[in-house]
Nucleic acid binder design. Structure first.
Lengths: 215, 215
DNA sequence: CCAGGTCTTAAACAAACGTTTAATTAAAAC
DNA sequence: GTTTTAATTAAACGTTTGTTTAAGACCTGG
């Protein structure tokens, strides 16, 4: 162990290690299901360090959620806006967001599992993030699509829908891995392509569109 | 309060009330975040009744997961098989599954939030359910589509994808409700239609399919 | 009426929980 | 070299946790 750090960095490293282990444990056992003693042991720090750095367990959770959601929002901003047509930007966004999810898998799982929780300390801040996300999706996807003549889509439905699609693989991964004959964790590349294709053209993908109306 | 039940039914009613309140509380506070005393108070029963009926807290969770997943599997079996073309059956399945999710909202949230947990007592049983689900989806969707000439789809990707799409609205609902200017819980009918349309034809829906290849 | 099963209760158990305190070490600043 | 500041430690705080126990209430079948 490299205990000989420059001094000033020592605390920062402990702090970082706590966050990383918290994401790992919260994803596997849940936020409430993970004790601070177990977390401290996994991170190799003293129990009191967690409250020293973050003030409380809930504040640590907030920091994890904030870090992940801010990064996701950043991806949406960067990939969804531009002069290209909606299809191109949507395809780019899906690929980048899936890649972002893959590299922040634990934080993603923590965020999704804590989404439905109605803790008053956290829900309002999640709503604030949601408002920004809806704004981007409405401006860059829904409005352009409506201008092209497609039916008007509500960003409040499309936003969660897109996010859930891109996250589905990671959400189900623990179960899939336990299933025989499949589920080995392959590169997320082809998965991103599948999601993009379905979002753009449906499950049959760029063919067979000459069916009559259904129902 | 109708305390005057036929006698033999009394226990069954208490048991039922415990399950209902457990779904409600687990959905809002998480499984680990809900204490048995709080649950007992909400259900109007004595603390010891929970262990009397279910043996342990984890067994109660298992029963909730099992009830929901069995119902979901039943919907998939009933709506996905038949002689109609894939599009028709998929459309029907999406509408029925969304309706099922809507009427079992709390159990759905509990199930999704507990999906990534790797508790050895539960994960193997979740995997058993997943295997049955993958079997149905492969037989009724992936294979017929491949026969029609579409690209071969992996049920291990399509299954979680479909489920996540149909669940997205309910998963994000607590956050959406807190957001201003939208998110009022409207009937799931138009939401089911949106999901079905995207699955079948993509986000632009039944038009504008004459774009060139992307990227 | 009484025996037998189901259901309900209050009380206690050890263990684990999140948080706080006070004392100590180590590096930085002056 | 001394003062400040940041990082780390062990120990204890009072609650709350899931579970168990033993006794009592209730209704049912004989």
């Amino acid at each position: 162990m490299s205990k000989k750090v420059n001094g000033k960095e020592k605390g920062r490293l402990s702090r970082q290690r706590i966050i990383e282990e918290a994401e790992r444990l919260f994803a596997r056992q849940g936020y409430s299901g993970t004790g601070l003693r177990e977390l401290a042991a996994a991170a190799g720090v003293n129990l009191a360090m967690i409250n020293y750095f973050f003030g409380s367990k809930k504040q640590l959770l907030k920091e994890i959620l904030d870090g992940f959601l801010a990064g996701y929002l950043e991806v949406a901003r960067q990939e969804l806006q531009g002069d290209e047509e909606v299809r191109v930007r949507l395809d780019r966004f899906v690929r980048c967001a899936v890649a972002y999810f893959a590299s922040h898998r634990d934080a993603l799982l923590v965020t999704i599992a804590e989404l439905p929780r109605d803790d008053p300390e956290i829900i309002e801040y999640k709503a604030a993030w949601g408002r920004q996300m809806m704004e981007i999706i409405d401006r860059e996807i829904c409005q352009p699509l409506a201008r092209e003549g497609s039916r008007r889509l509500s960003p409040h439905l499309i936003g969660p829908l897109l996010t859930s699609m891109m996250a589905s693989r990671f959400l189900f991964a623990p179960v899939m891995e336990r299933m025989a004959g499949g589920g080995e964790v392959r590169g997320g590349r082809e998965y991103a392509e599948l999601v993009s294709r379905i979002v753009l053209d449906g499950i049959e993908g760029e063919r067979n569109h000459n069916y009559g109306s259904v129902n």
